[in-house]
Amino acid sequence: MNPFRTEELLESYNGIALMLEDDKIVYINHQFSELLGYTQNDVIDLHVIELINPDDRAEFTNGVFVNPGASEMTTQIYHKNGSHMYFTLNAFQFKNTYVVLGKRLRRQYKSFDYDITKEDIMQSYINHQMDVDDISEIVTTRFDELRFALDNLPVDFWIKDKDHRYLFMNEIMLKRTKMEPNSYYLKNDFDLFDRDIANDFLKTDMQAIKTKKKVQYIFESKTSRFVKWTEVSKVPIFNKDDKYIGLISCAIDISSIKGNEAELAQENKALLDILHSQYDVVVYINSDGYIEHQFNRLNLDFEQRHYRECFKENTMLLRYLDAGLKGIESNFLGTIKGIAANIVVKPVSLPDGHQRLFLFGREQRS
C-alpha cells in the first residue's frame, strides 16, 4: 500500500478517517482533527482503543481487527475534551494496515441538562394506571405543563385521543408540518395531510393499538412538508381497565444518518473499485458456499453456483476454500480455471458464527 496515495484518499473522504498499523494510529485526516480536537502529534503511535468508549471496545476490536469489513458498527469516540461523539464506522484491512472510515451520528439529545432518548420521552408520559376514559382529560388539564416541557425537545412530539384526533403537537412538530398553533386541535390525519400520508399514519397507529405495544419504524416522506427521513415511535395508552384512551408519539429526523449511509455505500464501492484494480479476480462466497458476487478481468465462467461445483477440477483450490470456511486464511500460488495466479482466500466471520469467503486472484504474468 502506498502511504502517500492512501493519505490523499483519506483526506478526500467526507468523514473521519484514520489509518492504523497493527493497533496503533499512524494517520488521521483533517475531519477527524476538526470533529474530535486532536492533532496528528496527539495521536500518532497511540493505541486506538484508548479513544474508544469502554462500552464499545469489544465491538470495535472485533469489527476492525478480527472481522474487518464484515459489518458497520456504531461507536462512541472520545473528544479531546473528554466528551464523546457517536460515529458509524467501517473498517478495511490491507495486510498489517487498517483503514477506518466513519460518519458522525447525532443519536442523543439534551434538554434541561438531562440526557433524553426516545425511550425516556415515551416512558415519562406512560402510566397504565390512568383513571380516565380518554387521554384528552389529562392533556386539557396539563396542557401548559406539556407545552413547557415538550416544546424544548429537539424531536417531533404529538398526542392523539382515542378517536385518532390530535390533542397536542410540540413546537418543532408545528414548524416541520408548517401548521399554526391549535390549527390541528381535534382534527385527524385526513383533515391535515394528503390521503396517502394519512393512510400510512393511521395504519401504524392501528398496529400499535392492536398489539398494545410500542411500534417503531422509519418513515420516508415523499413531500417537502416533512423532512426526508424520520424514525417514528408510537405508544398506545390504556387505562386501569385496559381500555384504549390515546396515543403518544414522537419522531426524530434521521435524514443526515440516511445520507451518511448512502455516502458510506458510495465510499465502500470506491474502495471495492480500488480492490478490483489490484486483482484480476474477486469472488465472494456466502456462508452456504454459493458464489454471490464476482469480478474478473479474465473472462472466466464462475456463475452463481456452489464453489465445489464451480472448481470441482481443482482439488488444491477446493482444499483451501474448505479451510477458509473453517476460518483459515491462505495465500498461495495456484490456478483458477487453468490460469496460473497468486491466490488469497480470506474468511470473514459473520455475527452468527458462520464464515463467508473472499477469493482474490492476480494472474501470474511472465
Rank of each mutant, 00 (worst) to 15 (best):
K187C: 04
S136E: 11
N286K: 06
D133W: 14
L247H: 11
L174A: 06
V215R: 07
Y185E: 05
L51F: 06
I16R: 01
D273K: 08
Y13Q: 03
Q31R: 05
F219L: 09
D163M: 10
P3F: 12
S12I: 09
G259V: 02
E303H: 12
E309S: 09
G361C: 10
Y217L: 15
N127P: 02
G63K: 00
Y38D: 02
E220L: 03
S136I: 09
D161W: 13
T39R: 06
S366T: 15
Q294D: 14
A198Q: 00
T230Q: 04
K213Q: 14
F60M: 12
A58N: 06
Y184P: 05
Q355G: 04
N67H: 01
A17G: 05
L186W: 07
S277P: 00
M316W: 05
S136W: 02
F168H: 01
I252L: 12
K24A: 04
F143I: 04
H79K: 10
A149L: 09
R362L: 14
N62I: 13
F32E: 03
H164S: 10
F112A: 15
N299R: 15
Q123N: 11
W229Y: 14
I237G: 01
K337H: 13
L36C: 02
L359H: 09
N152W: 05
D156C: 11
Y13S: 05
V99A: 00
L264H: 03
L325S: 09
D288K: 12
D45N: 15
E180T: 13
A70R: 03
Y78F: 07
V100M: 02
R104T: 04
N67W: 00
L20M: 10
A340R: 13
F332N: 12
R165D: 07
L271M: 06
L272C: 06
I285Q: 03
Y38A: 11
S224T: 00
T6N: 02
H354A: 13
T177D: 02
Q40K: 13
T141D: 04
I126D: 10
I285S: 04
Y114R: 11
S366I: 15
N2S: 07
L357N: 10
